[in-house]
Write a protein that binds this DNA or RNA. Structure first.
Lengths: 335, 335
DNA sequence: CCCACGGAAGACATCGTTGTCAACGGCGTC
DNA sequence: GACGCCGTTGACAACGATGTCTTCCGTGGG
């Protein structure tokens, strides 16, 4: 309650005074070092308990030069289930290494990403997992040279050589479109985010590969890019359906777009086939059939964290790119 | 790449040597303290840039005795959207106070919760937001006396007097059941988690209040507790519908139970009314009408963080309980 | 010409802890 | 009885930074 006249937090030297020993002896006891007579150790432990002493991990880390037992995770937005799933997976791996996780959101702002990066460096995190917002990460180089371990997640870094873990975007999109083609569709509406986004670019490339593989020409009128939210996605679907020679199927580039497409198709009761990249929560309960290009999001986080701790543990091999596979899943009620 | 023969991280004294000044002068420059001739300051900044110096925030905090600019959040599982929404809201408020957030999962294990608590204390976090797993928090008292600020979230603490932020569980449940009663339902199946869970207990109390208010007797045969996952919820719904004199409506105690109930009702094509506590993602797209007792989950996190930073800022008022209101929302397609 | 004065810069102690090394006492050994 | 050894314990420095205080210098007034 009253924050003014509370007592000072006890230090190791308070404990030493209370137990009538030197600070070094206290240090030995609380760190389980050998060479302390049991009787003394007991007195020290009693003093520790009585004073409610807790070792200051920051001071301890400073003196001993040990790693800080902290890693950082820079993502776009923790409120997004995709990122929170990753954060949970990373935290779980970190716990296995007795390491804490500081998660920060870059809000897709490269400048903020840089600031967050600098702050985490000042805290002397042992490593960082970064979902890059910016497109140039040369600024991380000096820290990497000073021993900061980094793993880039979901998108590869540019301007620096470092580990990365990404989804098999092109192959997944190609498989999704190939599936629609195999079902006989020849006019497939493609709706995706801006090609400035790595994943959107890769997925669109996969779409082209699949079309080419089936000898179906790529038709610009059937491709809509720069769609960033469900509302816009719904309007894009509407526009294509209202156009001349409408598509009989849609391929959507991420789950926000997929949700927008579902809303518009359900609203019209239209039965166009729909395949979307990314699975999402409760996709199985959607009121119409759809197919998703799914992958294990936790695996993304897990693989990145595993890579990071391998580096922290001393792995000095050449940077690697880990690719997480995708698979087609039938979703929605009635599928 | 090569982690062995990299150079040591430069310290303030390396910078001082490079600039030909004392460490104190460097300290003054990097902290923007007055009293340094511009020419010298420039030399220092040049050295900082050249060496890639970054102040060690841990050492700085140790010496200056400032707060660590870190808070902790103890939740059950970051992968759960409810908790990740809270974490995101807390992180956002924290950023406004130039504070980092360490999130840890207790996995609903009171022993782990205590361990996590201790670890965060050793890191000298300025404050903690705790979603309690255990039922006794007297063990936090000594830290509270040493100045640790705490706010309990979603469930009040026991064994210690501290701020808390909770949902208006009883009133929300009462409103949900009253709504079903107003629609003419007299046999309402109630499915909830174990009464050992605070929220389940409060919500069940709200249910009884509403029934009593309408003069409808509380019938044990229509109440099923200790339901902890969608599968069990579906089976509970099935059992009630298959019983004699089945309910015409269901009230479900949380969103996992609501989802299980929807699955079973959809499977049977049964048209019982359904009202559930907690909104959930995509509830609007559920293939049947339902009503949810919703509330602003972000507001929970936001309020808790605001309370915590008020405490950190010196607020020494009597501990308060903040109650976040609920409201009924019609959800599902066709509602 | 001397001294008080004020601004700039540095020397030194310090935060809480751990690493290094020296000191101490008791013991066995020659 | 002197020596060396070993198991204990403590004194002191150091980690990387900042707070306090002193020193130094140039200036202006008497």
């Amino acid at each position: 309650m009253d924050g003014q006249d509370r007592r000072r937090r006890p230090t190791i030297s308070d404990v030493a005074a209370a137990a009538g020993v030197s600070v070094k002896t206290v240090s030995r006891v609380i760190n389980g070092e050998p060479g302390v007579r049991p009787a003394l150790a007991e007195r020290v432990l009693a003093a520790v308990a009585e004073l409610g002493f807790r070792r200051n991990a920051l001071a301890s880390g400073l003196r001993s030069g040990r790693a800080s037992a902290t890693i950082g995770l820079i993502i776009e937005d923790l409120a997004n289930p995709f990122y929170s799933t990753i954060a949970a997976a990373v935290a779980k791996v970190a716990r296995g290494h007795d390491t804490h996780l500081i998660t920060v959101s870059s809000e897709e702002d490269p400048a903020l990403e840089r600031r967050q990066f600098a702050e985490l460096c000042q805290r002397r995190v042992d490593g960082l997992i970064i979902v890059p917002a910016g497109s140039d990460h040369a600024y991380t180089r000096s820290e990497a040279e000073l021993g900061l371990k980094m793993v880039f997640l979901d998108r590869p870094p540019s301007g620096i050589l470092a580990d990365s873990v990404v989804v098999d975007n092109a192959a997944g999109a190609a498989a999704g479109v190939a599936d629609l083609l195999a079902a006989g569709h020849r006019r497939i509406g493609v709706i995706t985010d801006s090609p400035s986004v790595y994943t959107a670019r890769e997925r669109l490339a996969g779409v082209r590969t699949a079309l080419a593989g089936a000898g179906v020409p790529y038709d610009d009128a059937l491709v809509r890019t720069d769609v960033a939210d469900p509302g816009r996605a719904a309007r894009a679907v509407a526009a294509m359906l209202d156009g001349a020679d409408p598509p009989t199927a849609f391929f959507t580039g991420n789950n926000r777009i997929t949700v927008g497409a579902i809303q518009e198709l359900c609203r019209r009761g239209h039965d166009a086939a729909l395949t979307g990249f990314d699975d999402f929560e409760l996709s199985a309960l959607m009121p119409r059939p759809l197919t998703v290009v799914g992958y294990d999001v936790r695996e993304l986080g897990r693989a990145a964290a595993a890579r990071l701790f391998a580096r922290i543990g001393g792995d000095a091999s050449w940077p690697s790119e880990t690719v997480v596979p995708t698979r087609l899943e039938r979703r929605g009620i009635g599928s």
